[in-house]
C-alpha cells in the first residue's frame, strides 16, 4: 500500500503546512504547560463545529504516514461521527486506520477513554466542545484567564460544594474537573467521570483540541491528574450494579441500550472494541445469546 497517496487536490491531512506549523507550536506549548489552555488560530474544517473540529485539527497536525489511526465516539468506532472523521483522514492522508485500540498509534476520541491501558507509543486526541472549566461560573474569557493565572479556584469548589448541599454528593458525572500537577484546573472534556482516574499517570500523551473555542491543551505522559473533591466527600468514580450483558465485564463503563420495542434493555460496554475482544477471548455475558445483532455487533 502506498501511504503517501491521497485523494488528488488535498494537502496531506487536509491542512496547509503553515497552519500545521501554527498548531504544532501550540501543541508544544501545551505540553510544556500541562493543563493550560493555549490559544490557537482554529481553521474552518469541512465539517460543522460540534463534529470535533478541534480534535481533527490536532490529529491533522501530528499525523504522519506511518501512523495507524483509530476514531471513537462514546466508545464506539461505528457511529456517524467516528466513521466520517475516519473516512476524512483515509481520504486526505491515506494513513491506515484500525478499530483495535492496541494497534493504533493515534486515537481520536469523543467522550471516552478506551478501557485497554494506553501505552507510551500512543497519543490520545480528545475532541473538546467547551475547554474552560470555569465557564459556567464566569462567562468572560478575560476573567477566567486571570482566575487561572491567580490559581483562583474558590468558585469552582463552592459550586461542587453546592452539589453536596443539594444532593448529598457531588452530582457532576461528566466533564468532572481535574487539577493538573497541583496547578491548573482543567476540563477533561465530556468524558464520564468513570474515566478520570485513567488520565492520571497515563503512559500515553493526551492532547485536547477545542475548535470553536480555539484552545489546545495537553497532559504529558505520567502527569498527576487529580479529580477535585473534599476531604469529607472524596471523589468516587461511577460504579455499576451490572456486568456487561455481552462479555460479562465488571470493570468497564456501561451504556444502557434498548433491545426491542417492548421495553427490553440491557447494559453493555460502551467501548465496543474492548467488548468484542473480550468475547473473542471467550468471555460471555448473561444475555450474549439473546442480544440482537445490531447490539452484539460483528463479533457474533
Amino acid at each position: 500500500m502506498t501511504v503517501h497517496q491521497t485523494a488528488s487536490g488535498y494537502n496531506f491531512a487536509y491542512l496547509d503546512e503553515q497552519t500545521k506549523r501554527m498548531i504544532r507550536r501550540a501543541i508544544l506549548k501545551a505540553i510544556a504547560i500541562p493543563g493550560y489552555q493555549v490559544p490557537f488560530a482554529s481553521r474552518e474544517m469541512p465539517m460543522p463545529y460540534g463534529w470535533g473540529t478541534g480534535g481533527v485539527q490536532v490529529t491533522a497536525a501530528i499525523l504522519g504516514s506511518g501512523d495507524r489511526l483509530k476514531v471513537i465516539d462514546q466508545g464506539a468506532d461505528d457511529t456517524t461521527n467516528a466513521v466520517s472523521i475516519r473516512k476524512f483522514f483515509e481520504k486526505t492522508s491515506g494513513v491506515e486506520t484500525t478499530t483495535h485500540t492496541a494497534d493504533a498509534t493515534i486515537i481520536q476520541t469523543r467522550h471516552r477513554i478506551p478501557e485497554k491501558t494506553l501505552t507510551a507509543d500512543q497519543v490520545l486526541v480528545y475532541q473538546v466542545p467547551i475547554p474552560e472549566p470555569l465557564r459556567f461560573l464566569e462567562p468572560r474569557e478575560t476573567e477566567t484567564r486571570v482566575m487561572h493565572a491567580l490559581e483562583d479556584y474558590g468558585l469552582m469548589h463552592v459550586k461542587l460544594y453546592e452539589d453536596i448541599a443539594t444532593h448529598g454528593h457531588i452530582a457532576t458525572t461528566y466533564a468532572y474537573p481535574v487539577k493538573v500537577e497541583d496547578r491548573y484546573v482543567m476540563d477533561p472534556s465530556p468524558t464520564p467521570k468513570f474515566d478520570n482516574p485513567k488520565m492520571n499517570d497515563c503512559a500515553a500523551l493526551q492532547l485536547f483540541g477545542a475548535g470553536r473555542e480555539k484552545r489546545i491543551y495537553a497532559l504529558p505522559p505520567h502527569t498527576k491528574v487529580v479529580s477535585l473533591d473534599f476531604e469529607d466527600h472524596p471523589f468516587e468514580p461511577t460504579k455499576f450494579d451490572h456486568a456487561c450483558a455481552l462479555c460479562g465485564a465488571t470493570h468497564t463503563y456501561l451504556d444502557e441500550v434498548i433491545t426491542d420495542d417492548a421495553g427490553g434493555r440491557m447494559f453493555v460496554c460502551s467501548d465496543t472494541d474492548h467488548c468484542e475482544e473480550r468475547r473473542a477471548e471467550g468471555h460471555r455475558g448473561e444475555l450474549l445469546g439473546e442480544a440482537p445483532a445490531a447490539i452484539a455487533g460483528a463479533a457474533e
Binding site: E17, K20, L28, L63, G64, S65, A218, P221
Partner: peptide, 19 residues
C-alpha cells in the same frame, strides 16, 4: 520531502518535550 520531513521532525520534538 517538505510535508513528511517536517512532520517527522515535529513529532520528534513533540515526543522529546512530552518525555
Amino acid at each position: 520531502d517538505p510535508v513528511h520531513d517536517a512532520q517527522q521532525t515535529f513529532r520528534a520534538v513533540m515526543n522529546a518535550l512530552a518525555r
